[in-house]
Amino acid sequence: MKKLIAAAALLGAAMALTATAHADAPYYAIIAKGFDHQFWQAVKKGAEDQAKADGVTITFEGPKTEAEIDKQIDILNADFAKKPVGLGFAALDTKAETKALQQYADAKIPIVAFDSGVANDLPVTTCTTDNVAAAAEAAKQLAKAIGDEGEVADEIHDQTSATGLGRRKGFEEEIAKHPKIKLVDTKFANADAKAADDIKAILTAHPNLKGIFASNEGAANGLAIAKKETGSKVIGIGFDSGKKQKDAIMSGLLAGSITQNPVGIGQCAVSSLTKALKGEKLEKVIDTGFYYYTKDNMSDPKIAAVLYD
C-alpha cells in the first residue's frame, strides 16, 4: 500500500511538472479536436507563436480522437474552472456543446471558434477554412488531371463532422458539374491502414477508376499506401499535409493536395481573442485560406510555411 501511495505521489509530481504554469499573464484556454493528426500540432504551433507575440499564456488541449464529443465537453467544463479570460474552441459537434459554451458566454469570456464553427451566436468570430470551397478546388484539380472524364471516388475522413460533411459536399457538388465524370463510390475511414484497405477494395470493384479524392491526412496516407501496394495508376488528390503525404506527392503517388493554413488557424484563434478583449470589432467568419499544392510549388515559401510534417 505504501508503495502504491509513493508511486501515485510520483506520478502526481510528474504531471504537475508538465502542467503549464500561468502566473500573471492573461490565460486563454484553447481546445482542439484531438491529436490524431499532425494538423493539430501545426495549429498548436500557430497558437503558441501568437500567444508569445501577444504576451498571453495558453493551454492547448483536446480529446484523444475526433469522435469523443463527450470528452471535449468535459475539457470545456474543466477549463472553465481555471478562469480563463478567453476561449478558443474547435467544436467536434456544431450543437452538442452549446450548454458548456454558454457558461463562458455568461461569464463574459469571449469565445473564438476555430477550424469549424458552431450553430449559435456565442463565438465572436470563427477562424476556419472554407471546407466546401477547398474541396471543390480539389475536385477541379482532379477533373483537370483525368482529362475531365471517367470514374472517380472519394474517401472521406468522417461521416458526421462539419469538415467531413463540408469536404464531401464541396467535392461531390463540383464533380456533378462535370457531365463526363461519374462518382462511383464514397467510403469513410480516418486511419491510414483502414483507409488503405478501403481504397484497395474500391480499386478492385472499379478497375476503370480514374481518380480518388482523400479528404484528410489519414485518408490521403491510406490512398498513397493503397497505390503503392497495388501499383494502381489512379490519380489521387489529398487534403492537409503531414510528412507522409508530402512524401507521397514528391514521389508522384499523389498528384497534389489541398492544404489549409493550420498555423494560420492557430494564430487567428489567439489573435482574435486578444482583439476581442481589446474591444475590437471582428468579422463573423475569418477565412484562413487554403492552397492547392503539388511537387512543383511545395518549396514556394508561401506554401512551405503552411505545410507541416
Partner: peptide, 15 residues
C-alpha cells in the same frame, strides 16, 4: 507489421 506498412509509428492509433 503495421508501422512498417505505414512507414511510420503513429502514436494515436491502437485503441
Amino acid at each position: 507489421l503495421l508501422s512498417s506498412r505505414l512507414g511510420s509509428a503513429q502514436p494515436a492509433i491502437g485503441m
